[in-house]
Write a protein that binds this DNA or RNA. Structure first.
Lengths: 195, 195, 195, 195
DNA sequence: GTATAAGCGAGACGGTACGTCAAGTCTTTTT
DNA sequence: AAAAAGACTTGACGTACCGTCTCGCTTATAC
């Protein structure tokens, strides 16, 4: 079921405008946080008409999501030889990105909020979440592939859940130590019962 | 450090208005969800002036939070004799409340969203979260009190984190089966390594 | 038809409160003008409950009106021997009061505005206006009593009208010179046609 | 001093919206009077967003003023050959407009009130007043041009003053008879002393 | 090479909700 | 019973953003 590719007529989408919008969105997010991000402000900062944003994205949240996806493209899936080691490395580099300079944590929090308020956006956000889950699930399967699927799923929920929970509530930091403890607990919970 | 108890003069806060506001808020949340909850609507439904809401609560989120706190007052902390059993029971009754008739899940999601957008509210919300954490922490300490504190904290984060994660993302249900798997994994991760 | 004087029971109306209210009202009018006068502010400044104001006056405009009436009690009706002279003297002292230190002009303007917006108050205000008209009318009748009543009425309208018009529109000052010109024109318009 | 005519970009002001707003304002004024006119009601009746009103007018009073100015565009300046005749005709047609079907009198009263309460609006209102004064002044100058300017000004104040005074206080009607008396008194007061 | 189709920056538009202000009323305690 | 204090309902205010709709241009293909 190919996409119909009829060679369209008229002016082409401006890559310059697209970049300017994404960059402006990230910049504004970094400066003021998601709550104070407005479509008007993005348009103004990007030197772009509001319609140009709405032509290509359904909402400001979608813009932020795309901007973010670009950033978070490559978190490496390391190979240390042990489940605990791989998990610790994966979580540590994820947490490091969140503490990064681009206000990534703020953006993620804002997107999760938006997903609660806008069901349309929630669907797009779920795709993003699923792709991250896939990466973590792959690590678990590499070392504990014989465990029941429900347990693997639950383990993923517990790891990413713990991350999001700290991210959203802010009661404790997402640091290396936390990455290590999570890895340790998770590895212990999944290992075969009998040595 | 006594609370100054100067016997106030003038008309007293109307308990009737307070109740009407909280009830109206819960009712509207149940009917339309948090995203469509407005201060005007609460005031109208409660037969109350908007100002009366703003006099006592800083935002509609604070109203919803208070309404919710009343509801969630008593989730029992069971005693089954084992860590896994207690966890499974606690999680199961928590999940049951979330599936309950008052749209509790929707309210919680909305509140978490609000906390991301309004730092002022985030502080109040954190108190609510902390009280729930305390209940779960108590169960863990009863059976695994000798574990390092950081591990207990992380275990709480993983359990409630997993719950919130499913609640917010909606990729899988919060059912009894999930409660059991979480309890199992958590118990295994905390038990002493050697029998 | 005597007023029934049944010796009322309970606490008596506090003259101190009455004075405090009128004084506070005048002071606030002088400071901020009528537009920014609020019942709350009067009550606060007078150290009085709002209800005490509403118990005795129907609106803040009525308070201002009473305060004003006290001030404007005695504008002398002079006797110079000529119509023109009497008019000039009467207008000059009226204008002088308006330029006085108590913000009288501002109060009058505010009351006229209120009368346009509140029919209830308009009635009370009309009484005040009528009493001023009476004073001016008396002067005219003293010297031009044989003129048709309609002309005397019209002359009063033209004199007070001119005053109010300048007061309300503010396009020109209410000074001695204006008082003299008005007196001159009015006297000429009313004198018998033939010497 | 040319008006800078930079050829504006973006969507143009909607004449349809402008008309709808002015028409709605007049209609509401006619129905309910100025005191009960609200920006919300105008917007609703005109099928327009409130912001569209605030974008082009600083207040509801400015809307009413513009609506009114359109109405009162043409009161004829008649030529009867005599000062008294011209004045009588001018005043009579002015009064007739005020009694007209569009609630003009009510609007004018409301605007004068507003001018007392809002200094910003007072400036705009003064322009309107000045234009009316100009028309009357022209008639006076045609027949009594040699009189001192201060007397002409005062005569204008007395005529329009009398009109506004009756309009605002409402103690007597603005009818033909009043127009005639005003014209008579005014003409007599300005004629040369000696035939 | 000229019609036709889209994209673009700008900005006005119809709406919804916000949080504030003041008006006038009602309730509690004190005098 | 009146007073001070202050909470109450009501209703309008002016602002902030939302997402849509023109306007006058600027590119691109298509004829």
């Amino acid at each position: 079921m190919e996409e119909v590719q009829r060679p369209r007529v008229g002016r082409k989408r401006s890559e310059a405008a697209r970049r300017a919008i994404l960059d402006a969105a990230l910049e504004l997010l970094r400066l003021h946080g998601y709550a104070r991000l407005t479509t008007d402000a993005i348009a103004r900062a990007a030197g772009v008409g509001k319609q140009t944003i709405y032509r290509w994205w359904p909402s400001k949240a979608a813009v932020a999501l795309e901007a973010l996806t670009e950033l978070g493209r490559a978190i490496p899936s390391p190979e240390t030889g042990s489940l605990e080691g791989d998990l610790a490395a994966f979580l540590a580099s994820t947490f490091r990105l969140l503490r990064g300079p681009r206000g990534t944590a703020a953006v993620l929090k804002g997107l999760m909020a938006e997903a609660q308020l806008d069901p349309e956006f929630a669907r797009g956000f779920a795709v993003f979440i699923a792709s991250r889950r896939g990466a973590l699930r792959a690590i678990l399967e590499r070392h504990a592939g014989r465990a029941e699927p429900a347990r693997l799923e639950a383990a993923v929920d517990m790891l990413f859940g713990a991350m999001w929970y700290r991210l959203l509530v802010g009661h404790a930091p997402l640091d290396i130590a936390f990455a290590r403890v999570l890895a340790r607990l998770s590895a212990r919970s999944l290992r075969p019962v009998r040595g």
